[in-house]
Design a protein around this nucleic acid. Structure first.
Lengths: 357, 357
DNA sequence: TCGCGCTACTAAACCGGTTTAAGCAACGGA
DNA sequence: TCCGTTGCTTAAACCGGTTTAGTAGCGCGA
């Protein structure tokens, strides 16, 4: 008379000779169950190999016990960016301990909003991560309207009701620029990400600021798109200029690596004639030629932390923005002093730039 | 007296003046509902903005309406491999049309089995994808035991009850080797993936076979791990040999790109002294120096197709293995004729080949 | 007139948990 | 002796759908 299928709480109750409700109490460690009875119930549950049905619990508790991640990037860019897999792995680390799952959506950019709507309408998730923040990001309002808890990765420009993971790209960029300035560079270019992405803009502004702090002009910037093709193209533009930069700060490693190849094809030696820095410290960064000086970030840790806050938020606990450790500059061989010895010692506000060649 | 929260099927029933059950029939297009009544119900549902509760449906139907993907790779390798994001994007393309979701698990390799067990025990998913197949993969038996439908990406060595996505890496490798042979190479090495991974082994065997077909010895093989570090290391080993290869076929782009850097640092010109081919056609492949000749695969399409079969399998439809189009060799600048005219000593029962130069 | 079959619909069970209200026994205090 | 607690336990409602069994009304043929 053994029915097939998994045992339910009802089977456990029968086996232990008690009611369904009491089994539920015992299994959830509620008070009001006699020790001897509790023991009997737990033993029965173990003997039957009972495991709670996630579906039943979800319906009863009106919770999904899952969080969502909507990714709206073209797949080829996704594949080249080391951020996502590491971030997701970090998220999982937190989630798996707590019986939560991660529901992923990869959508075309046009369907991004619909993606969040669907996750919310279906009740598939209890909260979401907000990545790739944009300037004046419309998703913030959408999520508030949907009442879907969220954690933003990086702090959005406008204040929101959602906690943010405080990621600050500025010290990393500042360190890269400072390093180049110290080496003697005066003409430091930037290949930026799209300006409507927060991280694209923040890195560009940080580059500008760092140059200003060093008393240098920030006139060698080309906006790009974080892709290899874009990085290559932007590098060509910069190297075609009459007054070439002696160093380029890239907004990510992918563009920087593509930039290395362009320089090489143009016969521009790196780091002899051109210094290059990246951002991310991708797996490949240390294994290109020359190995790339770059800014190391820790997306795995970000994922862990973001998931942690999100779960607390969902549980209704009070939450605050979460700080993250500053990114570190990783020195490798793609940076060196500029070709000609700097005409002047640095820090004279020297107008004598023409003497350099 | 309007209660907060989403409207339920009960609200719709009340609004339309019918019973819950009838609403369910009407909304699911069942016969046995008068046209006029059906219209009234649909109108009411629309007016209330009703959407079915995924949770309730899941409990009632004993289905999760979701499929799972367990990834057991170290995060840094994950980030560098273009396969996963593209594959997942393809999966999503199929799933999103059908109201299905993707549940992702990223686990340490040691917890892989537990990952599947948990997905199955929780009833979070109705089926899973089996990626990164290994020789004698223990997961096959596990999934059969768990009764969790699965689709394997590539055909496992032992026959299973699960359908497979027929991915054949051999023509791609064969094309790469043939291309090199045609250029005049006689000493063609291979940097392989781990031999316990099916795709690692298959590519190696394909390389061996292609060399045999060309009457060349397959004695320049170094096993590696698909990582940049591993690729660099393996390249050093090969280039340190007394009799250097004039060409290296890498089992993936990441190792190939790292190999390019090593060659450069050793002063070995690519493609002048050494030809290099990769596998994947990663975003960066076309933007390194020299641009990489490689084998283009289509993980996005694989994801689409795999999800398609998996859903059919879950629905109990009869399914068969799914063919995929063969991979294409993409010619770029990392391959060229070997440096010196091929020396004719080596064991020549094939005298005519030396005339090629 | 009855019985039969068909259509349109309702009531209730069910999925498998959680939670609330109520019941029952033993016990201490007045 | 009766009452009010306290401790343990059960019955039943509930989450929001799907599905089954059953019923009312109607036309039809015998």
């Amino acid at each position: 008379m053994t029915r097939p299928g998994r045992p339910t709480i009802r089977d456990v109750a029968r086996a232990a000779g008690v009611s369904k409700g009491l089994v539920s109490f015992a299994l959830n460690g509620r008070p009001g169950v006699a020790d001897e009875t509790r023991e009997r119930i737990l033993t029965a549950a173990r003997a039957l190999g009972w495991e709670p049905s996630h579906r039943a619990r979800a319906l009863s508790a009106s919770r999904a016990f899952a969080v969502g991640l909507v990714i709206a990037r073209p797949p080829e860019l996704l594949g080249a960016d080391p951020f996502f897999p590491a971030f997701i792995a970090g998220v999982e680390r937190t989630l798996s301990d707590r019986g939560q799952a991660l529901v992923l959506q990869v959508v075309p950019e046009s369907a991004e909003e619909a993606g969040y709507r669907k996750l919310a309408a279906d009740g598939r998730v209890d909260g979401v991560f907000l990545l790739d923040l944009r300037v004046d990001d419309p998703r913030l309002a959408l999520l508030e309207q949907l009442g879907l808890p969220a954690v933003t990765i990086a702090r959005p420009m406008a204040p929101t009701r959602w906690p943010a993971l405080l990621i600050d790209d500025r010290p990393g960029i500042a360190a890269a620029v400072a390093h180049l300035v110290e080496l003697g560079h005066r003409r430091i270019g930037h290949v930026a990400g799209p300006d409507h992405f927060l991280h694209g803009r923040v890195r560009r502004l940080a580059w500008e600021r760092a140059l200003a702090d060093a008393g240098l002009p920030a006139d060698l910037c080309v906006a790009s798109d974080f892709s290899a093709a874009g990085g290559a193209q932007a590098t060509r533009v910069l190297l075609d200029r009459a007054e070439r930069p002696t160093a380029i700060v890239y907004a990510n490693d992918l563009m920087a690596i593509a930039g290395l190849a362009v320089a090489r094809e143009l016969g521009v030696d790196v780091p002899g004639q051109l210094s290059v820095t990246g951002f991310d410290d991708a797996e490949l960064a240390g294994y290109v030629s020359p190995p790339l000086t770059t800014v190391r970030t820790d997306p795995f840790e970000w994922g862990r932390a973001a998931a942690h806050v999100l779960l607390e938020l969902i549980d209704g606990e009070p939450v605050a923005d979460v700080p993250t450790p500053p990114a570190q500059l990783v020195l490798r061989a793609s940076t060196a002093p500029p070709p000609a010895p700097p005409a002047k010692r640095r820090r004279s506000p020297a107008p004598s730039r023409s003497e350099q060649t």
